[in-house]
């Protein structure tokens, strides 16, 4: 589905991605983990075409995405921090996003309702709290029923109720065989969802396997603990990791 081949990206002299090789398949949910600055967001943005790699190839459905844009029809993206035109009202934002993709008639507005965004529709974007903005970002990511979901820190800033709403939604969508890429620090939130883990450290992939294998390997029953063990074993410094 998504395949990265020797993807390298420099910011100035800093090598953010170093010959990243990665295959991601439909029906899987990948947890993209790694410390701050390990290249998670850069990797995601490379897939989206927002960051252009210095070398290497990114293929989606066996097509090179460099210079392309139509492949993004299949992607729903929820950014780490949702930045929106400040003066736009929420209703206008949704209307605009729908207006830009008139080919999708049957939009998925379930999250708008379950997040309770409807009463806030005529609020301007600048007046919304960080959490509400995250809800908007999540709703937008699901709006066009994409096949690939890329969620950058989806649970950060959301209240527990909203996290539950989002998780339920993810579980439901997962059943229909879609592909998810999720980065998160808060591993508990992902427990029931992720099937695979990709661990990124200093721009290269240090670990990539199914969660079951990971649990077997580390002899831990909980995902978060398994990871903690992994990190300890492999001496990969993650300081922000929240363990239960």
């Amino acid at each position: 589905m998504i395949s990265l081949q020797k993807v390298t990206k420099f910011y100035g002299r800093l090598k953010t991605l170093s010959e990243v090789e990665l295959e991601m398949k439909a029906g899987h949910c990948y947890a993209l983990l790694g410390p701050n600055g390990s290249g998670k967001t850069t990797l995601i943005k490379s897939v989206l075409g927002m960051v252009i790699p210095d070398s290497g190839e990114i293929r989606i459905n066996n097509q090179n995405v460099a210079g392309q844009y139509l492949y993004r029809k299949q992607i729903g993206y929820m950014p780490q921090i949702g930045q929106y035109p400040a003066n736009l009202r929420m209703a206008q934002l949704f209307e605009m996003m729908k207006g830009l993709r008139p080919d999708v008639k049957n939009t998925d507005e379930e999250l708008i309702d379950s997040f309770g965004l409807r009463p806030l529709m005529d609020k301007r974007m600048y007046s919304l709290s960080g959490g509400t903005r995250q809800k908007v970002s999540a709703a937008l990511a699901f709006l066009f029923r994409p096949f690939i979901y890329i969620l950058d820190e989806p649970t950060a800033g959301l209240d527990p109720v909203a996290v539950e709403v989002l998780k339920e939604k993810l579980i439901r969508e997962k059943k229909s065989g879609k592909l998810f890429i999720i980065t998160s620090h808060i591993l508990n939130d992902l427990e029931d969802i992720v099937t695979d883990m990709v661990y990124l450290f200093e721009g290269s992939i240090r670990y990539n396997s199914a969660i079951e294998d990971l649990k077997t390997e580390t002899r831990e029953s909980s995902f978060a603990k398994a990871i903690a063990v992994l990190i300890k074993n492999q001496d990969l410094q993650i300081k922000e990791l929240v363990t239960p």
Partner: peptide
């Protein structure tokens, strides 16, 4: 000022 707007658009098939 419209950097956010551009960001938003860039995640779309445009």
């Amino acid at each position: 000022n419209s950097y956010e707007f551009i960001l938003l658009l860039m995640a779309q098939p445009i």
